[in-house]
Simulated scan of single mutants.
Amino acid sequence: MTTYLEPTQASGRALMMRGLTGPVVMLNLLRFRDVADYSADPGLAPDSPISGAEAFDRYVAHTDPFLRETGGEVIFMGEGGPFLIGPEAEYWDRVMLVRQASLDAFMAFADHAAYLEGIGHRTAALQDSRLLPIAPMA
């Protein structure tokens, strides 16, 4: 099973080539690890094991100030589950919609040094994910 946790150079280039202007909403589909894996960033690890969902909550708490600083906000976060229409075996633990003021604002957020210091919570939390940038229809 292929998992997706980070953008590729090709997907980043394709996003920039879309020429999106104005607000962008990021649809996040998130599947958590049963137990968070901090092996890639042990300095962020809590004293005792936590769930992937708890690690992601730490990521959201860390991220929110930097998201707001660049004009973004979480506009929806909810519990996922299996699809009504879609692959029967596929499920997502959580769904999140994040509004960014613009693609440039998103890039400023994603490159913010203080934000990146806590990204290890996201890495520890996720087993798999999808991120779909959505632009309003004209």
Rank of each mutant, 00 (worst) to 15 (best):
M1Q: 11
T2Y: 03
T3Q: 06
Y4V: 15
L5P: 12
L5A: 07
L5K: 09
P7V: 03
P7G: 12
Q9M: 11
S11G: 00
G12L: 09
R13A: 14
R13H: 10
A14D: 15
A14S: 13
M16Y: 03
M16N: 12
R18H: 00
R18K: 14
R18S: 08
G19N: 04
V24W: 07
M26E: 03
L27V: 15
N28M: 03
L29I: 07
L29T: 07
L30I: 06
R33P: 05
D37I: 06
D37W: 02
Y38E: 11
S39C: 11
S39H: 11
A40H: 04
D41K: 12
P42I: 07
G43R: 15
G43F: 06
A45P: 13
P46I: 02
D47V: 12
D47F: 13
S48W: 14
S48R: 08
P49M: 01
I50T: 12
S51L: 07
S51G: 11
S51C: 08
S51M: 04
A53I: 13
F56V: 00
D57K: 10
R58G: 01
Y59N: 06
V60Q: 15
V60Y: 11
V60D: 08
H62N: 08
T63V: 09
L67R: 05
L67F: 01
L67N: 06
R68D: 09
R68Q: 08
R68P: 08
R68V: 06
E69G: 01
E69H: 04
T70K: 09
G72M: 02
E73V: 05
V74S: 13
V74D: 14
V74E: 11
I75E: 07
M77F: 09
M77N: 14
M77W: 08
M77L: 15
E79C: 03
G81C: 09
G81T: 05
G81Q: 00
F83C: 06
F83S: 11
F83L: 12
L84T: 09
L84Y: 05
L84G: 08
G86D: 14
G86I: 15
P87A: 10
E88D: 10
E88N: 04
E90H: 08
E90C: 02
Y91M: 14
W92L: 10
R94A: 07
R94M: 14
V95N: 04
V95R: 07
V98F: 00
Q100S: 09
S102C: 07
D104Q: 07
D104K: 05
A105Y: 01
F106R: 02
M107Q: 12
M107Y: 02
A108R: 10
D111F: 02
D111M: 12
D111L: 03
H112L: 01
H112M: 03
A113W: 01
Y115N: 04
H121W: 00
T123P: 09
L126Q: 05
S129T: 15
S129M: 06
S129I: 06
S129K: 03
L131H: 12
P133Q: 01
M137N: 06
M137L: 13
M137H: 12
